[in-house]
Nucleic acid binder design. Structure first.
Lengths: 184, 184
DNA sequence: CAGTATGTCATAGCGTTGCTATGTTATCCG
DNA sequence: CGGATAACATAGCAACGCTATGACATACTG
């Protein structure tokens, strides 16, 4: 129903299943609980896609690849992404988001420890800036404000700016990031 | 009702006014139309705050000041900000957002024309990156995912990274941006 | 000035929503 | 075997957005 943009109502949900509306209450405790479960599933899928990103010898490329995976995940199922960051979302779902965010922090720390970023770089802070910028871009694209075609170039330039400011060599950084966005 | 986090329902809306539910339909055409009007009002207020940012001799500082005004506007009435970028928002409200966005493009072009940014800088593209990054940060803060206290430092570092990558001198850029975030 | 058109809004009610109370059935465990 | 527990179907409630209808006021028109 999410993918087909049909309104997700309790009665329409159980219509084809042969079950009654009570099933939703015994298993999810109501519609908010069901949406919470949907968001959990969304973050689980995101985590799976991030985990599928291989480690290479270039930690900056891997960092960019995480961003690409994040963007592709969102654009493959935009309705799910919107549900994950819905304005009505419960704050109790934040830990699931934090769990996937940790992967980004680790990748930043690795890029720093391997000498690509300044030794004084705070992985958590840079990962937050990186994520917020990416989330902002993806949100606007998913919302339809920005066309999907501009996401790659904009994300590339933003990533290069953030990582260069953190100490990476500009030209080398751009090569690493652009390689992550290359098709295939 | 937005400010007090009460659910905005048609009946609760007209309850204290002495009017009936029909008034909403004659003036707004229904609840979606009413929300659209709310978002228009939100963008109008945002535009007013951006217009109140004075021009100084430092175009990069002014660019940062626009970001500060954007953030303050959102944090002063977070519910309105959430309504403006609600996942259920109609795309027909985008022109109102574009109108405020133009102010950012002009400010970027000015910073470029006054020699602070590379001559080849595309004002629209940089403004989009700048806005998306700021929107991402503000969204996460308004949503409660990030604490409000970290917004200033994160936004500062992000702005410095983006503007430095566009050609501004790093140290000078940081001074300009930090001055915009200074209280008062 | 009379007559008509138009915009506004109160009343009443329709279909649907999320949710709950109640009774029934199935499953598990001592 | 028998009692406890969970799961679920049925029915119905309050509230939701919305619409049909008619009353009323104002504003045009001949």
């Amino acid at each position: 129903m999410l993918a087909e943009r049909e309104p997700v109502t309790l009665r329409a949900l159980v219509a084809g299943t042969g079950a009654s509306t009570m099933a939703v209450y015994t298993h999810f405790g109501g519609m908010p609980g069901l949406w919470s479960a949907v968001r959990q599933e969304g973050f689980t899928r995101l985590a799976r896609r991030l985990d599928a990103v291989p480690h290479t010898g270039d930690p900056v490329h891997d960092l960019a690849a995480l961003g690409v995976a994040y963007a592709r995940n969102a654009l493959d199922s935009p309705e799910l992404y919107r549900a994950m960051f819905d304005t009505r979302a419960d704050l109790a779902d934040a830990p699931a988001a934090d769990a996937t965010f940790d992967r980004l922090v680790v990748a930043v720390a690795r890029a720093r420890d391997e000498g690509r970023l300044d030794a004084g770089t705070d992985p958590g802070a840079l990962a937050t800036r990186y994520w917020a910028a990416g989330h902002g871009l993806v949100s606007l694209v998913v919302q339809g404000v920005l066309p999907a075609g501009v996401l790659g170039p904009l994300a590339t330039d933003t990533a290069v700016a953030l990582l260069t400011a953190a100490g990476d060599d500009p030209a080398r950084c751009r090569r690493s990031v652009e390689r992550a966005w290359a098709p295939g």
